[in-house]
Amino acid sequence: MAVSALSVPRPVAAPALPLLERRRRLAGAAFLAPAALYMIVFFGYPMVHNLVMGSQDYSVSSFYTGDAPFVGFDNYAAIFSDPAFWPTLGRTAMFTVASIVFQFVIGLALAVFFVRRFPLSGVIRALLLLPWLLPLVVSASVWRWIFDQDNGILNIALRGAGVIDEPIGWLNTVAWSLVSVIITNIWIGIPFNLVLLHGGLQAIPGSLYEAAALDGAGPWRQFTHISWPLLKPVTQVTLVLGLVYTLKVFDVIAVMTGGGPASSSQTLTVWSYQLSFNEFLFGQGAAVGNLLIVIALIAGLAYVRSAQQSLRSAS
């Protein structure tokens, strides 16, 4: 208030300006309203509801009666003391890190490859987007068949090539199930990384590469000194979005292994679902969900911070 009063130093023009200003602000608010309303209804409300649910003993009855006793941090205590907690957190970290690293590296390699124009490059690039266009349930079902121990094409191919003697139980052994769902998730995530990074690479002016070539820089030096530094903002966005997308992966694991066998491919999302819909412990399920929100939030804030820093250093 005080600031706006001070920032209007010309009393003569004052009567006209506030009206214009007010109108402009009103228009601004009107334009903002639909988006804000949308966010509040479809994002704010569910999130607040989930936060509240995490501190309630929310049972099947609660849905009908609306009564859910407040239990403070009991749900969190139950989760943290559950013997499944640390292994599940570890698997979630493993799943997320491995998925993102491979998705990003392979996506970047493909993006660099497709920046050069060659016959059919557009068609092939479009085909590479296919995994992204398929419904996740379809992709996961297909991979489920590929990984099948007895009749899956992967085991048949590996045995035919003499790589293995005995079929590997990709989806039904504790040693392999997490690896299998990670491989599938990498395959699904590559196109997303490819598209974003390819767009970022195309935005880099070609003249920089020409100049570097004239100065005698080879492809590797061009990549490390031009592409990589100039791609940094896109890289950051890609990694943060990748992190959020990977943390919340549910369909792929649910379809392929259901988190099994013996919970060996269970991540926090799958655990949250199982607590909620198999055991009907909705409060605990919500608590696990909240934990995921916090993790994603930390990653998001870290991104915003580093983006601001790079803006500041740029200006």
Partner: peptide, 11 residues
């Protein structure tokens, strides 16, 4: 253990 049921039965 006998191998009479495929380990895939777990999935």
């Amino acid at each position: 253990d006998d191998g009479s049921v495929s380990a895939s039965a777990l999935n």
